[in-house]
Design a protein around this nucleic acid. Structure first.
Lengths: 336, 336
DNA sequence: CTGAAAGCGCTTACAG
DNA sequence: CTGAAAGCGCTTACAG
């Protein structure tokens, strides 16, 4: 009973009284077809509801017109923004974007990567991953185009798209110093080794130095990227001999934890203590006071990644690996 | 230069000194192969990095071992939970799950749906959509299996998975009445026509009636599913002659708006006014006080949907259309 | 225990 | 302006 209904190119050819060659050409538009013939074929296609079988076409053309986004956590809004951006440009070029999830660590990443290359997707955008060099090389060995997020060009094959984290953090601190006149500015980071904490910290230091301020080493705390981490870090920094006027937090969750502590201690934000987040997750604008933060342009990153892929796929771009760096945007709200 | 590296089954066959038939059988395991031969072939496969071309296999077998989830808004955490749930069960059966986005309205939905059937995905899970009957029929006409979310069985082809919204709302109100002793319980809904507002409202009424309370018509407000809507609705209901002791909000954003108003008026939550949300978005637990709400089991719904698909695909299930209804879970936090 | 060959549904040189 | 036929890379009856 299944598949009975599926109409194929031969069906429309015979219904229209032409060869499959001609039907194929009216579909692809790659060859002139007499207007009358074309009209007849198009009519039959419509009537029969014919749809080309992408599986057969793909086998023949070695192209699937499909782009894949692979991310560690499909639940992360940043990743879904990226997907939306890719979809936007891909669809305009007749490509479909599919998104897949594979855990950050373990063999499942290789597994899913292979599932994707086996299906012959034309290009893969790989989120922030600890993918091994071997995994990456295996992808490009199949001829599949690759764009990576976040890491440097030199670390592997494929083009790279990343956000300018250091500059984003710099802007934030500059806002604190210039617009709010803060001079004692603390920093609460996640684990020091884990990106993008390091870059954000670098931007924080840079901005302070640029403003002729020194980095207050007693006001730097490393915890982790959670609300609880924010509570711990803020509690510690607020008991410094000379307490901070502002707290730069390495992500929004940490900032929300810092907000908790400020509330518990009766500190008015931003009057007594300015607090900034990072990432602009949904909760950043829903919390009270709303968080001043930095927005990671996920959508633009998705667009850029899709363009990079499409240039190699469609325009025959065969040049050297490229890196696209996107600026992050300050979102000034109530907390600073 | 492209594709040069791609090794095919014929390459491993000749390298191993056997026929492609045999190579195929060691891969699929569908026929006995002499241990020595098998070992030799497996060794060559590993050495050459051979990977079957899913495009060719799909053409031959009429199967792609791929499931698709199509959602209106890939950015919605509920949808991404569904994806994660599908992925979980699909992967265990050797299927890959891909998620695609298509806008709620307009021709793009049909377009993407056709892209998916053209690629011969084996099954599609369709999120809450205003898909036309025509779109749905076109999917099943190609033999692609379909699972829909939220709507009733009778409204179209395919199996259905949905959450028990009415029961979820009932549980919530019961909690308010029993555990907190509220008697004047208001309701702030989104637009009355838009699901799942109606079902949640029905559950609210039902619970009140069950508790021997009457539905306070002066304490029901319809606005929209936003924080701003929550502000408007709460402001109106709080100026009733006999103000409410609790506000049941049709989603979390509305509840966050209600929280704003309570704060502005110096009302302590939940002491002076209990407030409940719905959906349990991330912000629900990040806001202060944390929201008591109802959790929509997106992950379980994804699992259920994938199982339904797999039963038809793998177990030859050809029976009547089925509907799976999942319970929602009360998440009691601070706001009520 | 293994192989030769047909065929899945297309596209595209090649030919007229 | 159009068609006959080869071939994309597999799987699977059929045969031995």
């Amino acid at each position: 009973m299944r598949n009975t209904g599926r109409v194929k190119i031969i069906d429309v050819a015979s219904a229209a009284g032409v060869s499959v060659t001609t039907v194929s050409h009216v579909i692809t538009g790659r060859r002139q077809v007499a207007p009358a013939t074309r009209a007849r074929v198009e009519d039959v296609i419509r009537r029969l509801g014919y749809q080309v079988d992408a599986t057969a076409r793909g086998l023949r053309t070695q192209r699937t017109t499909t782009l894949a986004l692979l991310v560690p956590d499909i639940t992360n809004p940043f990743n879904t923004e990226v997907a939306a951006g890719m979809q936007e440009v891909a669809l305009a070029h007749g490509y479909l974007t599919v998104v897949c999830e594979a855990p950050m660590n373990g063999p499942l990443l290789s597994e899913v990567l292979q599932q994707l290359t086996a299906r012959r997707v034309d290009g893969i955008v790989l989120g922030r991953y600890g993918a091994t060099r071997r995994d990456l090389d295996r992808v490009t060995a199949t001829g599949t185009r690759l764009v990576r997020f976040g890491r440097r060009l030199s670390e592997g094959p494929g083009d790279v798209v990343r956000a300018d984290e250091t500059e984003g953090a710099r802007t934030l601190v500059e806002h604190l110093v210039r617009s709010r006149g803060c001079r004692r500015v603390g920093f609460i980071g996640g684990a020091p080794g884990i990106e993008p904490g390091g870059e954000r910290y670098a931007g924080y230091r840079q901005a302070l130095l640029d403003a002729g301020l020194e980095v207050p080493e007693d006001l730097v705390a490393w915890t982790d990227f959670t609300r609880e981490g924010g509570r711990t870090g803020a509690a510690r920094l607020l008991s410094a001999d000379v307490p901070p006027q502002a707290l730069v937090c390495a992500n929004d969750l940490i900032a929300i934890g810092a907000l908790d502590i400020a509330r518990e201690r009766g500190l008015r934000v931003p009057h007594d203590l300015a607090i900034t987040g990072y990432d602009d997750i949904d909760a950043a604008s829903l919390v009270s006071p709303a968080l001043t933060t930095v927005f990671n342009p996920g959508r633009d990153m998705g667009r850029a990644a899709a363009r990079l892929l499409l240039e190699r796929l469609e325009d025959g771009e065969e040049g050297a690996a490229r890196e696209v760096i996107l600026a992050q945007r300050l979102v000034a709200r109530e907390s600073a």
